[in-house]
């Protein structure tokens, strides 16, 4: 039994919108083990970004509400912790973040160096090192100068590791002066600098050119592996998921449907939605095949399994009761009363 680094259980999150209450996450279970790379897959609006933001504790204050559930990180429920402690000890330290859009996620009016060193000031692993505790502060900003120098060395080292040319020069630049790919490399570097246990990467490549997406993802995977850092990676792109993830969880309309190791997910999908999703990928045999029907509105979602109105295997029971986990094999769970029998189903080509 592999111990879980993160365990999300029975999580329900709703948003107040002008049209009414949207039930964005419905009884979601999710786990990630130490050093594991897990892909969270689903169409846009399926709740994967909300799940990521709930784990980080940065849901919009005015409109979002957590109705139930636990988010356990190293055995402690983050939802019970005061927000100051989360901000100081968890966010940016134990769990870091790579945003979707590296263009707008940098503050436009400060240099990259200022922003990275701000991160290091608060989140550098050396912050807890008693060696630096009593050294004189730098300027007026309370950043001990010896630690500043040491941190800066680490920053430059890591910028080289993420293959940024001339790291010194990049630190002096403003965000708009470097390319999108470079910005995302910087984001990866900033996610690794605090030496976290887990990185949450929210669709980290959708804003980038297709040609550099693969490079960035492989870089992220390599660096995470070297450091034994877990990665929660949300995406709607099944191809990249297969390439870089150890395990995949698929979400539909705010419910997670199936969790499986990558091979199992692509070769023996057990949930009808997963099967349909994989069949909707363009392939040589059948071209593009969509799933009939529409994604449900989250204001008044279907009861039970939210996929049942579009599901070919659905029964009466599916519309009233949310299926519990059915174990298919080790670490392969599906939440369906009528899982697909494992025969040969079109794998991702």
């Amino acid at each position: 039994m592999i111990s879980n680094l993160l365990r999300v259980h029975d999580l329900r999150v709703s948003f107040a919108t002008e049209a009414g209450i949207a039930h964005v996450l419905d009884r979601v279970d999710f786990t990630i083990a130490k050093g594991e790379i897990v892909g969270l897959v689903g169409e846009s609006g399926c709740g994967k970004t909300t799940l990521a933001r709930t784990i980080l504790g940065v849901l919009p204050e005015n409109s979002a509400r957590i109705d139930s559930g636990v988010v356990e990180f190293e055995g402690e429920n983050l939802l019970d912790k005061p927000s100051e402690e989360l901000s100081d000890k968890i966010r940016g330290r134990a769990i870091t973040f790579i945003p979707q859009d590296p263009f707008s996620s940098f503050n436009p009016v400060f240099t990259i160096g200022t922003q990275i060193m701000e991160l290091m000031k608060w989140k550098s692993p050396a912050r807890d090192d008693p060696y630096y505790a009593n050294s004189a502060s730098r300027f007026w900003n309370g950043y001990p100068s010896t630690r500043y120098e040491a941190d800066k060395g680490r920053v430059l080292e890591l910028l080289r590791e993420v293959q940024l040319p001339e790291p010194e020069a990049i630190l002096a630049k403003y965000p708009h002066e470097v390319s999108g790919g470079q910005r995302q490399r910087l984001m990866i570097a900033m996610a690794l600098l605090p030496e976290p246990k887990m990185i949450i990467a929210d669709e980290p490549t959708t804003a980038l050119d297709v040609t550099i997406q693969a490079q960035i993802l492989h870089l992220l995977r390599t660096l995470a592996r070297e450091r034994d850092v877990a990665v929660l990676f949300t995406t709607h792109d099944l191809g990249t998921t297969y390439e870089i993830c150890d395990r995949v969880t698929v979400m539909y309309a705010g419910q997670e449907m199936e969790t499986a190791p990558s091979d199992g997910f692509f070769n023996t999908p057990s949930h009808p939605y997963t099967r349909d999703l994989l069949q909707s990928l363009p392939s040589r045999e059948h071209g593009i095949k969509g799933i009939p029907g529409d994604i449900p509105a989250l204001i008044s979602p279907p009861g039970g399994c939210r996929f049942h109105p579009r599901c070919t295997a659905a029964s009466e029971r599916c519309s009233v009761e949310r299926p519990d986990h059915t174990q298919i094999s080790e670490r392969h769970n599906v939440r369906c009363f009528h899982p697909v029998a494992h025969k040969s189903v079109g794998a991702a080509s």
Binding site: S87, P99, S104, E118, W122
Partner: peptide, 28 residues
């Protein structure tokens, strides 16, 4: 903005986010 979301997600102290990063943008 997205940069404030990022700064919050990375656990920058709230006072630093508001009085340094947000204010500087607003002052323009």
């Amino acid at each position: 903005s997205n940069y404030v979301l990022y700064e919050e997600a990375m656990g920058f102290p709230r006072r630093v986010i508001i009085w340094k990063y947000v204010l500087r943008n607003a002052l323009i």
